[in-house]
Simulated assay, not measured.
Amino acid sequence: MSGVPTRWQVRAQRPIAYDVIKTPGLFDPACDALLAHGRPQGRRFVVVDAEVARHHGAAIRAWFDARGVQARIQVVPGGEENKTIEVWQGLLRALDAFPIHRRDEPIIVIGGGVLTDVVAFVAASYRRGVPHLKVPTTLMGYVDAALGIKAGINFNAHKNRLGSFEPPLAVLLDPTLLATLPRRHLMNGVCEIIKLAIVRDRALFEALERDGAACVAARFQDVASEAILDAAIGGMLDELAPNLHEDELERKVDFGHTFSYGLEARHADRLLHGEAVLLDILVSCLIAERRGLLPAADAARIFALVQQLEIGLDCALLDAGLMWESLLDRTLHRDGLQRVPMPAGLGRCVFLNDITRAELDAALPALCARIQSSHEPALER
């Protein structure tokens, strides 16, 4: 036997190609977008958020019935508390009891960002990967969670600790579905729009200052809303598309996602994802301001926008120890460097690797003071 090692090289690339398509009136009898991918008369395993089913379940069932499509409508409760291995396994069992073709009968998920993450992981896991379509029904999913290829579930008290990268066949956006969202869930998505505006799109921030409150009042159904949503989606996809597998670990879209992980996991019953992100954003803005990265005038505008939009924040949930542990965990996630996105003026971003515990400790009481002062009634003149 020769002592020279023998090597066989395997090199392959999996192409990623999917469209994000705005499709108003998706469940209208005249709209065929849901069957535009896969075999039109094939079966469909359709996972629907329980709250969506309450509002639109009859229309969804009637839509498939009218086309003679055999559809298994699987209703699942949404929310972070259901982003679990048990829910994932339950969906896999239900799918296995309703066999579908491996390539031409895509799974369809209709729900918020949590459910699209879970079902995308189902699609990635079942038979080593089957196709799926996403229909986000929350503002968070519409502008953020459903747009990329990340899939996963929470595990061992950590967010998204199990998962994969699994591209959908398409993401179908129906803005009319946002009309039934409670205000708090609208604001949950607005927090992600604010995130994007601060670190990459000054014009979007100015649009939020000008039209944001009216868009929320209109439940994002008016013309100004369309412009804001389109800008947010376009900006998010511009950030995601060149780095879908996160080979580059300095990501602007991670702004607000460093200190927030521990808060969200600890207070899942009190904090929505966007609310935790916004607390992180504001802490980061104060650190950036104290370092001279973020001009005081820009920081004031950010806090003024939060006040103008009447986003409720509970500074009692802030916990320096927990937030520091989150930073340490994110440092592991980012290959040993903090890589914390920080605003350097509205629309600009830098990455820091030297944030100290002392900076975090100083920022939290300062944030509480800013929040409390913003809620004090103006003195009569």
Results as ranks from 00 to 15, higher is better:
residue 302 I to W: 02
residue 121 F to C: 06
residue 255 F to H: 15
residue 203 A to E: 14
residue 273 H to L: 05
residue 229 L to E: 08
residue 336 G to I: 02
residue 287 I to L: 07
residue 208 L to K: 02
residue 293 L to Y: 02
residue 153 I to C: 15
residue 261 Y to T: 09
residue 108 I to S: 09
residue 60 I to W: 01
residue 215 C to W: 10
residue 363 A to Y: 11
residue 56 H to L: 04
residue 150 K to D: 09
residue 129 G to K: 02
residue 280 D to L: 05
residue 222 D to M: 02
residue 216 V to L: 15
residue 226 E to S: 15
residue 285 C to N: 12
residue 85 I to N: 13
residue 366 A to W: 06
residue 35 L to I: 15
residue 283 V to T: 08
residue 325 E to Q: 14
residue 159 K to D: 08
residue 351 F to E: 05
residue 55 H to S: 07
residue 21 I to S: 10
residue 34 L to H: 07
residue 365 P to S: 04
residue 365 P to T: 03
residue 287 I to S: 02
residue 62 A to N: 12
residue 374 S to Q: 05
residue 380 E to P: 08
residue 132 H to M: 02
residue 207 A to S: 08
residue 348 R to E: 08
residue 181 L to E: 05
residue 144 D to T: 06
residue 264 E to V: 11
residue 381 R to H: 12
residue 22 K to A: 06
residue 143 V to I: 12
residue 36 A to N: 12
residue 156 N to V: 05
residue 355 I to F: 01
residue 42 G to W: 10
residue 212 G to K: 02
residue 88 W to C: 09
residue 356 T to S: 13
residue 156 N to F: 10
residue 314 D to R: 05
residue 30 A to R: 13
residue 137 T to H: 00
residue 168 P to G: 12
residue 262 G to S: 07
residue 241 A to Y: 10
residue 163 G to T: 00
residue 41 Q to Y: 13
residue 3 G to H: 13
residue 166 E to I: 01
residue 256 G to I: 01
residue 24 P to I: 00
residue 342 M to W: 04
residue 114 V to A: 12
residue 217 A to C: 06
residue 355 I to P: 03
residue 181 L to I: 11
residue 167 P to H: 03
residue 163 G to M: 02
residue 115 L to I: 07
residue 113 G to H: 04
residue 120 A to D: 10
residue 373 S to R: 08
residue 220 F to L: 08
residue 327 L to E: 08
residue 153 I to Y: 11
residue 129 G to Y: 08
residue 113 G to T: 06
residue 137 T to K: 00
residue 352 L to H: 04
residue 50 A to Y: 09
residue 209 E to W: 13
residue 287 I to T: 02
residue 224 A to D: 14
residue 111 G to D: 06
residue 101 H to P: 14
residue 248 E to Y: 07
residue 373 S to V: 01
residue 112 G to P: 10
residue 256 G to N: 04
residue 251 R to P: 02
residue 299 A to P: 07
residue 15 P to M: 00
residue 226 E to K: 14
residue 226 E to Y: 15
residue 138 T to V: 03
residue 375 H to T: 13
residue 179 A to N: 01
residue 159 K to M: 01
